[in-house]
């Protein structure tokens, strides 16, 4: 679990089987393990009404096989979160009332899938989340508005404008990103060393 932080920072829980006929799982990397752990507690036939969207990233390939072995109604394996987003938005836009949403894996994955679900009108409190794996952050540069993915260091160089950013704990669900603010704006000659902070 991430350490106690400020109020805008999302709080994650543990996936648990919810009542209902239709379930949408979105996971990346070690998020698969959260689904598998939950499956052990799920009633028989639970996955017959489930769709699983999975982005393995650099996780053990056997995880994808074990997810498939749950025999979900639909299983999609994608190469990246960005590649999976169009079909995820489509799925959410055409979802029927009562769809249960489960998000598991990195904060970046949970945040972006949450953002798509919110845009589709699903209330954030009705979405289950479980953080697994890397603490790498999605960071929006407050200056140029570009988003840098998979940030593990503090500070980090903005992938778009090149400013050296301090990664705040301040988080926007709408943007699905933490806020990055120039760390040496007052004196650009001060260049603090980047240290691994979000692993």
């Amino acid at each position: 679990m991430p350490p106690q932080s400020i109020i805008s920072r999302p709080v994650y829980g543990m996936l648990s089987p919810q009542p209902g006929r239709e379930h949408l799982f979105v996971a990346d990397a070690q998020g698969a393990e959260a689904i598998l752990d939950m499956a052990a507690a799920a009633p028989d036939g639970f996955f017959a009404g489930a769709q699983i969207v999975y982005i393995p990233r650099d996780a053990d390939p056997s995880l994808a096989e074990r997810l498939k072995a749950l025999s979900p109604a639909m299983f999609y394996e994608g190469p990246s979160v960005a590649a999976a987003m169009p079909r995820l938005r489509q799925t959410l836009a055409t979802a029927r009332m009562g769809l249960r949403v489960y998000l598991a894996g990195t904060e970046g994955l949970i945040g972006q899938a949450m953002q798509a679900a919110l845009e589709a009108g699903i209330d954030h409190s009705s979405i289950q989340t479980e953080h697994r794996g890397s603490l790498a952050r999605r960071v929006q540069c407050v200056h140029c508005k570009g988003i840098t993915e998979d940030v593990t260091t503090q500070p980090v160089t903005c992938a778009h404008c090149g400013l050296l950013l301090f990664v705040r704990d301040h988080y926007s669900r709408r943007i699905a990103a933490f806020q990055g603010v120039c760390i040496n704006a007052e004196d650009p000659s001060e260049i603090p060393p980047a240290e691994e902070a979000f692993r």
Binding site: S8, V142, R168, S172, R174, I175
Partner: peptide, 15 residues
């Protein structure tokens, strides 16, 4: 504003 829009009272005062 661009970052905080859509936040609730506690969230936008978080920092």
């Amino acid at each position: 504003l661009d970052f905080d829009i859509g936040m609730n009272f506690f969230e936008w005062h978080a920092p």
